[in-house]
């Protein structure tokens, strides 16, 4: 599969990961090799087989009642990078 710099940059943008030009060049070269090797999944995964599901029969439901504990909240709030009271402060997403 042909991977070019534009595609790597597009993936980085969608992933919210800024890359240096050196990283873009390196990943461009590597991704073609990885996708070429990995294309062999078509040999197993192209038929009418069902998709794999991890749950496989579990999916037991919990009682519809308030969760026990909940003491973790303070510890989680304490880890916010910037906060006002118990609220997380994030930069504006639009002007």
């Amino acid at each position: 599969m042909k991977i070019d710099k534009g595609l790597v940059k597009k993936m980085a943008e969608l992933s919210r990961v800024r890359l240096s030009e050196a990283e873009v060049s390196r990943l461009e070269a590597e991704f073609s090799g990885i996708f070429d090797y990995f294309s062999s999944i078509s040999e197993l995964g192209s038929g009418g087989e069902p998709l794999f599901y991890v749950a496989g029969g579990s999916g037991k439901r919990r009682e519809d009642s308030p969760a026990k504990g909940g003491k973790e909240a303070d510890g989680i709030v304490a880890q916010f990078s910037r906060k006002e009271g118990r609220l997380l402060v994030a930069p504006k997403s639009m002007d």
Binding site: A12, V17, S81, A90, P91
Partner: peptide
Amino acid sequence: DGLRYGKMDRELDSLVEGVSELRGD
């Protein structure tokens, strides 16, 4: 995203660019 999991070495001033740059670093 640099907002919820511990103090970072900078304050993010924009959501998309700031988070992308932080994750890149």
